[in-house]
């Protein structure tokens, strides 16, 4: 009897620190203000997701206050630098573009973060990269783009160095696509140029072209990193060697982890655990799902642990791949 009592007592005693840790994290956040950094100007996808995530995380931390701070600049670099450099007390978290993986791999000047070390809280969605071509281009399959005897088709991309541009360059290098890449199309200009017939397609995030395709103006002919069961052909089935597959993996990793939330390295474990569990609860909230649906913002969440793994994998590239990446990016210069 006493042995059982002892065991129970020992068990209770052992579990005290754990319970205390959770309590102390909750205690810590009571009455505190958490700053959620959005690395773009107000408006647009990142802002929409950031505000949605912050609002519903706040729902599960009713004693704290989560405020949004937009820190745009240098294609998300300024925002990511800010989050990285913030005091790791768990009161500054935020979101930025996964394309920053490329900038870190390319060792771009101005990058003052190490994504591998950040405290990952979770991701709200995937953002499949697709090759979309306009209906007027007449192109229906990727095979038509592999035939170099035909004149190249024109794909547009955002500015040189942007994630979209790098995706396209990587895909062209990996699959030897017979295309001419025309950079400099920002925002909706690209869609207009396809409607005008001036360019024939692009590689971009699927969510940006849903309406274009739904309206019957274009078709998806290839995707990278899409969900299982998708009818669109996967990019790696066109890859001829391992190098090509490695390059495509980078795009797939980037599209798998999108709309992420992260904090600076070294957030105390109990606070990070609390933030992660609050994030997971928020993502399952029926009201959030309803709101997201209304906003045309798909939700496909994953935990902070998963995001950490994907990011770590994507950053582990062989020197050969890094060279491929550098070549893919510099080829346009």
């Amino acid at each position: 009897m006493s042995r059982i009592a002892m065991t129970i007592a020992a068990f209770l005693f052992a579990s005290v620190p754990l319970a205390q840790a959770a309590d102390s994290a909750e205690e810590f956040y009571k009455g505190k203000t958490i700053t959620y950094v959005v690395s773009t100007a107000p408006g647009g996808g990142y802002d929409t997701y950031g505000r949605l995530v912050a609002r519903y995380m706040n729902k599960y931390m009713p004693d704290s206050k989560i405020i949004i701070r937009n820190i745009p600049g240098a294609g998300h670099v300024v925002g990511a630098n800010t989050i990285y450099a913030a005091k790791p007390d768990g009161l500054t978290i935020g979101t930025f573009n996964t394309g920053l993986i490329y900038l870190q791999l390319l060792k771009e000047s101005g990058v003052r973060f190490d994504l591998a070390k950040m405290s990952w809280i979770g991701k709200a969605a995937s953002d499949t990269r697709v090759l979309v071509v306009s209906k007027s281009s007449g192109v229906k399959t990727v095979q038509e783009l592999l035939d170099s005897s035909k004149p190249p088709i024109k794909l547009f991309a955002a500015g040189v160095g942007s994630a979209g541009y790098i995706d396209t360059r990587l895909a062209i290098s990996a699959l030897h696509l017979n295309v001419q890449l025309i950079p400099g199309y920002n925002g909706s200009e690209g869609t207009m140029s396809m409607l005008r017939g001036e360019t024939q397609g692009t590689i971009g995030s699927q969510s940006s072209y849903t309406q274009f395709v739904d309206d019957g103006n274009g078709v998806y002919i290839m995707e990278a990193g899409g969900a299982a069961g998708s009818k669109i052909p996967q990019a790696d089935q066109f890859a001829k060697d391992d190098n090509a597959r490695q390059l495509l993996k980078m795009i797939a990793a980037e599209s798998d982890v999108a709309r992420l939330t992260a904090g600076p390295p070294g957030i105390p474990a109990d606070r990070l655990a609390l933030l992660r569990s609050v994030f997971t609860k928020a993502m399952a909230d029926p009201q959030l799902l309803a709101d997201a649906k209304k906003m045309d913002a798909p939700i496909a969440p994953a935990t902070g642990e998963h995001v950490q793994q994907v990011i770590a994998d994507a950053l582990q590239q062989t020197p050969q791949n890094l060279q491929l990446l550098t070549q893919a990016v510099r080829a346009g210069q």
Binding site: A74, G75, V160, G184
Partner: peptide, 20 residues
């Protein structure tokens, strides 16, 4: 800012606030 055609930084003096 960033050269729209080559991605080269123009007159940014390594200052992030001038990238855009």
């Amino acid at each position: 800012g960033l050269d729209p055609q080559t991605g080269v930084q123009r007159y940014t003096f390594n200052q992030l606030f001038l990238w855009d």
